[in-house]
Design a protein around this nucleic acid. Structure first.
Length: 300
DNA sequence: AACACTCTCAACCGCAACTGA
DNA sequence: CTCAGTTGCGGTTGAGAGTGT
């Protein structure tokens, strides 16, 4: 694909994996365990680079990978978590057992980002009621949504109507209130301790902005008058803001994080999960109210 | 039927963090 | 402390498939 190889790959296979390669890799990892990716291909007899092997295992072959559609609950959780922590796909994936960061990233880019952006622009710049060009484009998008999934594992169990309904019961974050944590720079690496596996056993505390994040956050902070940032700070009330410079004190931000009631957030999250579990018994308006209350609770 | 366009997602990339000598 | 090798992450790409005309 477009770029030059990152390392010498002369003689190595590239592109889609064959069932045979999958079988070899799976067999090897089952026998020897994960890790040693660099030397794995040689030992396993694969003509692939270690990176490729790792990626294939992590995103596709792992036995705990969850196949199937992203559910409405997962969809909603992704949106909310993205609003909270930004493009930290591995962390988001950690909250969704069996889902991979790559899958969530793809899902966000293809399904959610447009919707959220549209929601934002709609609230920022209300559009005229009718616009032929826009309507045409929207119709096209809606029609595309009808497209059945490629893979059998991705088979839509729901009809078009159900798909539409799913969209209506997906409660988008309130972009005006939720300030996404902006991580400057393209590639960021976080503490290994904070990166969670897809087992879903990680703590919500891992989701909390870390010092490094807050460093970046403090650097990129913009006054947000009359609203609350992601930590629930009311900008007007927030004593961390240097009124003279109009900037936020990095030190104070960090202290604020240290002082956060992590346990109470964890409790809130558990309650949220419980709400989602009860979804079958709650529908439409009531569900919206419940989720709304969770949303509100994040900004107490 | 044929072509053009759009969407999806597996795979790739570069980079930064981690690790151990 | 330094440095080289390894690992993991997020951004990007493009082949393949679906849809519209």
């Amino acid at each position: 694909m477009g770029r030059a190889p990152c390392c010498a790959k002369v003689g190595l296979h590239r592109g889609p994996w064959t069932p045979k390669e999958d079988a070899v890799l799976t067999k090897y990892i089952q026998a020897h365990g994960e890790g040693q990716w660099k030397s794995l291909p040689k030992k396993a007899g694969l003509l692939r680079c270690g990176k490729s092997c790792r990626l294939r295992w992590m995103n596709y072959l792992r036995p705990d990978i969850k196949r199937g559609n992203i559910t409405a609950e997962e969809d909603d959780l992704i949106i909310r978590m993205h609003a909270l922590i930004g493009n930290r796909w591995s962390l988001i994936a950690g909250r969704l057992p069996g889902r991979t960061d790559n899958e969530i990233k793809n899902y966000w880019n293809t399904h959610l980002s447009k919707g959220v952006k549209a929601q934002q622009s709609k609230s920022d710049h209300p559009q005229p009621l009718s616009n032929n060009t826009d309507d045409k484009a929207k119709n096209k998008i809606m029609k595309k949504k009808k497209k059945p999934a490629k893979k059998e594992s991705k088979n839509k169990s729901n009809s078009v109507d159900e798909e539409a309904e799913k969209k209506t019961i997906t409660y988008l974050p309130k972009p005006i209130r939720v300030r996404a944590l902006h991580i400057s720079g393209g590639n960021k690496k976080y503490s290994k301790n904070s990166s969670s596996s897809a087992s879903g056993s990680s703590s919500l505390q891992e989701l909390l902005p870390q010092k490094q994040d807050m460093d970046n956050y403090a650097m990129s902070y913009e006054p947000w008058v009359g609203e609350h940032d992601l930590l629930g700070f009311s900008v007007e009330e927030d004593q961390n803001i240097d009124r003279v410079n109009g900037s936020i004190s990095e030190e104070n931000i960090i202290n604020n994080i240290d002082d956060m009631e992590c346990e109470s957030l964890e409790r809130l999250y558990e309650e949220y999960l419980q709400l989602l579990k009860d979804d079958n018994n709650v529908s439409g308006e009531n569900q919206g109210q419940l989720l709304e209350s969770f949303d509100q609770s994040l900004f107490l």
